[in-house]
Design a protein around this nucleic acid. Structure first.
Length: 716
DNA sequence: AGCACGCCGACT
DNA sequence: GTCGGCGTGCTC
C-alpha cells in the first residue's frame, strides 16, 4: 500500500506539497515531524501536516521524502494547528509562518555554491568574457561562493540571470550541498522537581484571584483573564498559578516584552522549580535554541519564559499562558513579524485549551474594554505609593528646556542627586538643511530625511537604519549645511551641558549608543554616581538595571499626539506612566512633565497616575470615532520597485474590496507614510469594518490573486 | 523563496 | 541578430 505525506514548506505558500514515503520511513514519519524533501532542484526542510493514500493529482509525479529528521515530532498537533490558525488570522501563508516559529537551524536547506569551471578560467584568461561575467569570474577564481555573496560583492545587476547564462555556456557550475544534520546528543536527565515552597501571601485580593483562576484552569477549557493592578501582586498571582499548573503536571508559557526586564524572576522560578525551566532570548546561539527545543519537546522543560518567539515553544499539556506588561508595544504587530503577541497568545491558549492570563497596571484600552465586557477583569489593586508629579505648562515659552525644569535639576544636583531626563526623539535635529538652496540630505533608498547625529558625526536614516558620515557642505550649491536644532535628544543633552558645565551629562538612545558594551558602561557609571544627568529616549524604559533616582523630567510627551495614529493618546499616557517607575519612592522624589498640552486627558490622567480617568476619556474617543475596540482596522501596504506596479496592485485590491461590498469602508489607495523604503515604493489601502471576521474574509479574498509584495497590519 | 522561461528594447 | 533587464509562473 503506497503512502503519501502532505508537507508544508518554509516558502510563501499556503498549500502543502505531497511526497511519497518509502517503506522504511512509514514508521518514523508522523504529523509534526520534520522531513528533508527535494523541491525544484534544491533541498528543503518541511513539516508533515497529514497523510493520504493516493496522490492528489493523477498526472502528478510525486517525489520521495529523503529523510525523516525527527524521532519525536517537532510540532505537537496543537502547535501545528496554532501556527495554521495564526497564519489564517493574519493573512500570512502557512509556510511563511514556519520560519518565525522554529529556530532557523532546525530548517536545514541545501545551499548553492557557484564555482568556476576550467572552461571559465580559460575564458577569463583570454579575455573572452563580458564586463559582468569577468567580475563574477574574478571573484570565483580562488574559491567557490554562494549566489548571495556574489550578489553583494560583484556589483553586477541581476546576478541570478547572469549565473544562469554563464552556466549555459559552461563557464561556471552550481553545486548544492546540505549541511549534515547533526545527530542529537543525549542531554543530561532532568533533575527531579525540588520541594515546592509554600508561600503565605496575606493579600486577600491575590488569594481570591489565584483561587478563581486556578478553579477555571482545572476545567481544562480555554479561558482568558486580565489581571489589573500592581506589579508585585501580579507576580504573586503568576507565581502561584504557575506552581499550581506544574504540580498538576501541566506546562506553562510565561511571556514578557523583553527578556532583559526579567532579572530576578528567572532566578526565583529556578529556585522554586528546581530545573525544568527554559529561558528564551535573542542572545542565544542557534545551537542553544535547538537544544532547548529538543528539551521542551521531550517534556524535560515544563516552564518557558521568553519574548515573542517563546510563543512557539512545543510545550506539551500547556495549561497556562502568562503575558505580563500587556500594554507593552513590543507585543504589537511590527515590521517583519506579522502578528500581535496578545492575539496570538489567545489563539494558542484556545488551541491548547489552556488559560491565558494577561496582566498590567495600565493595560491597553482594547484589552481593558474586552475584559470588562467579558467579565474577565481581575483587579488586584493599584500600587500603594504614587510619586509626586508636577506639570509645567511651557506654551509660549522659548527654548527647548523650560527654566522651571532647569531650576529643579539644579536643586537636585546641588544635593548631589542624579536626574533622568526623558525625551522621545533620537538624534540631534530632525535634519540638516542648506540655508542657501534649501537642500535637505535624504536617504537614497528611502523617502526620508536623514537625521543628524552630531556626537557621532553621522547622518542616520531612521527608516532603514543606514548611516553615512555627515558632510556639512551642501552638495548642490557648496553652501554650508546648518543644523535645524529644533528637537532631538542630542540637542537636549547639549543644552544641559551648556547649562550645567560642571556636571556630566550622557545620552542613552538606540542606534548610535546601541552597542551593548557602551550601554553597560554607561549604566555602571550612572550607578556609581559618575554621571549626573542621564538623557534618554524610549529605549531607556527597556533597561532593567537602571537604578532608581529621585528626579525624572519628561520633555514634551505630547509630541506623540501629533502622529496620525488612533493609539497616540494611549502612547502619551504610557510614556509618562512608565517613566514614573524610575523614581525612587522617597518623600522628596519628583516627576516633572514639561508640555505644551497640559490639558490633554492623556497627560493629565498620567500625571495623576489615574488609569481609570484615562480609560474613560480614551474609550469615549474610540467610540466616537469608531476606532478599535469598536471596529477593526487593516492596513495593507503594496510595495514594488516601480510606483506603477505598487499602485496597480493597490487599485486592484481596493476595487475587489469595494465589489464585495460587505459594509467595509475603504480608504485609499494612497502613498504609504513612508512612500519609499529600501528602494521599494509603497502604496497603501486601509480598511475599516465593524466585525473582525468580515475584515479577514475580505482580506483573504481580495489578496488572493495579487502577486505583488504586500504586508498586512491588523488592528486590534 | 529560488529558478527557468520568454518577452522586449538596445547594443556588439 | 545577441545581450541584459524584467515580469510570469512553477515547484510535489
Amino acid at each position: 500500500m503506497p503512502l503519501f505525506a502532505d508537507v508544508i514548506l518554509p516558502l510563501p505558500l499556503d498549500q502543502p506539497y505531497t511526497y511519497s514515503l518509502a517503506e522504511e520511513m512509514k514508521r518514523p514519519a508522523r504529523v509534526g515531524s520534520r522531513v528533508l524533501v527535494p523541491l525544484g532542484g534544491r533541498w528543503l526542510t518541511g513539516i508533515i501536516v497529514g497523510f493520504r493514500k493516493r496522490k492528489p493529482g493523477r498526472a502528478l509525479e510525486v517525489k520521495p521524502i529523503a529523510e525523516v529528521l525527527d524521532e519525536t515530532p517537532l510540532f505537537t498537533s496543537e502547535l501545528l494547528a496554532f501556527v495554521r490558525r495564526l497564519g489564517r488570522y493574519y493573512v500570512v501563508p502557512w509556510g511563511e509562518m514556519l520560519p518565525s516559529a522554529v529556530p532557523p537551524s532546525l530548517l536545514v536547506r541545501s545551499r548553492a555554491s557557484v564555482l568556476l569551471t576550467e572552461k571559465g578560467k580559460k575564458a577569463l584568461e583570454r579575455g573572452l568574457l563580458s564586463e559582468d561575467e569577468r567580475r563574477l569570474a574574478v571573484l570565483l577564481e580562488k574559491k567557490p561562493h554562494s549566489p548571495l555573496f556574489l550578489e553583494s560583492k560583484s556589483g553586477a545587476k541581476n546576478v541570478p540571470a547572469l549565473i544562469a547564462r554563464m552556466r549555459r555556456k559552461e563557464f561556471v557550475a552550481v553545486e548544492r550541498s546540505i549541511r549534515r544534520v547533526r545527530r542529537r546528543s543525549r542531554p543530561e536527565p532532568s533533575r527531579s522537581p525540588a520541594q515546592l515552597e509554600l508561600d503565605f501571601s496575606v493579600d486577600e485580593r491575590v488569594c481570591r484571584a489565584v483561587e478563581m483562576i486556578s478553579g477555571v484552569m482545572a476545567k481544562k477549557a480555554f479561558s482568558s483573564f486580565l489581571l489589573f493592578g500592581a506589579a508585585g501582586r501580579r507576580k504573586d498571582v503568576y507565581s502561584r498559578l504557575l506552581r499550581e499548573a506544574v504540580s498538576k503536571s501541566g506546562s506553562v508559557l510565561y511571556l514578557v516584552p523583553e527578556i532583559s526586564l526579567t532579572s530576578g524572576l528567572i532566578e526565583e522560578f529556578e529556585k522554586s522549580l528546581g530545573g525544568g525551566l527554559a529561558v528564551f532570548h535573542s542572545g542565544k546561539t542557534d545551537r542553544q535554541r535547538e537544544l532547548e527545543w529538543q528539551e521542551i519537546k521531550e517534556g524535560r522543560v515544563r516552564v518557558v519564559i521568553g519574548a515573542r518567539s517563546a510563543l512557539f515553544s512545543p510545550l506539551r499539556n500547556l495549561r497556562l499562558i502568562i503575558l505580563d506588561e500587556e500594554q507593552d508595544e513590543s507585543y504589537s504587530q511590527q515590521e517583519g513579524l506579522p502578528f500581535d503577541v496578545r492575539r496570538a497568545a489567545g489563539l494558542r491558549a484556545e488551541e491548547e485549551k489552556a488559560v491565558l492570563v494577561m496582566g498590567s497596571s495600565a493595560p491597553t484600552v482594547e484589552s481593558f474594554y474586552r475584559a470588562r465586557k467579558g467579565r474577565s477583569l481581575v483587579d488586584v489593586g493599584p500600587e500603594f505609593a504614587k510619586p509626586k508629579v508636577t506639570v509645567i505648562d511651557s506654551r509660549g515659552r522659548p527654548g527647548l528646556i523650560d527654566g522651571r525644569l532647569v531650576r529643579a535639576v539644579r536643586e537636585r544636583l546641588g544635593k548631589k542627586e542624579q536626574a533622568i531626563i526623558f525625551f522621545n526623539r533620537r538624534g540631534y535635529a530632525s535634519s540638516l538643511a542648506c540655508n542657501r538652496c534649501g537642500f535637505v540630505p535624504k536617504c537614497d533608498r528611502c523617502d526620508f530625511a536623514l537625521s543628524y547625529h552630531k556626537s557621532e558625526g553621522t547622518l542616520v536614516c531612521h527608516a532603514c537604519h543606514r548611516s553615512v558620515p555627515a558632510e556639512l557642505i551642501c552638495p548642490r550649491c557648496r553652501g554650508p549645511l546648518t543644523v535645524r536644532r529644533s528637537a532631538g535628544i542630542e540637542a537636549v543633552a547639549e543644552d544641559l551641558r551648556r547649562t550645567f558645565p560642571g556636571n556630566r551629562v550622557e545620552v542613552w538612545a538606540a542606534g548610535e549608543a546601541g552597542r551593548k558594551e557602551h550601554r553597560e558602561s554607561l549604566l555602571r557609571e550612572f550607578e556609581k554616581g559618575d554621571i549626573d544627568i542621564l538623557v534618554g529616549t524610549h529605549r531607556l524604559t527597556r533597561e532593567a538595571g537602571l537604578p532608581a533616582v529621585t528626579f525624572v523630567g519628561i520633555l514634551h510627551p505630547e509630541m506623540v499626539l501629533h502622529l496620525a495614529d488612533f493609539r497616540s493618546g494611549q502612547r502619551a499616557f504610557q510614556i509618562i506612566f512608565r517613566t514614573s517607575r524610575w523614581l525612587r519612592l522617597a518623600d522628596d522624589a519628583e516627576l516633572l512633565i514639561q508640555t505644551t498640552a497640559p490639558d490633554h486627558y492623556s497627560i493629565r490622567a498620567a500625571a495623576q497616575g489615574d488609569y481609570a480617568a484615562f480609560y474613560r476619556s480614551e474609550i469615549k474617543f474610540r467610540r466616537l470615532l469608531d476606532y478599535p475596540p469598536f471596529s477593526s482596522l487593516a492596513e495593507v501596504v503594496f510595495s514594488a520597485r516601480n510606483v506603477r506596479r505598487a499602485a496597480a496592485a493597490a487599485r486592484m485590491f481596493a476595487a475587489k474590496v469595494k465589489d464585495s461590498s460587505s459594509g467595509i469602508q475603504v480608504f485609499g489607495p494612497s502613498l504609504a507614510p513612508l512612500a519609499r523604503k529600501r528602494d521599494l515604493f509603497r502604496v497603501q489601502v486601509s480598511l475599516k469594518a465593524r466585525r473582525p471576521e468580515s475584515l479577514r474574509k475580505v482580506l483573504t479574498l481580495g489578496l488572493k490573486e495579487i502577486r505583488s509584495k504586500k504586508s498586512v497590519l491588523l488592528f486590534p
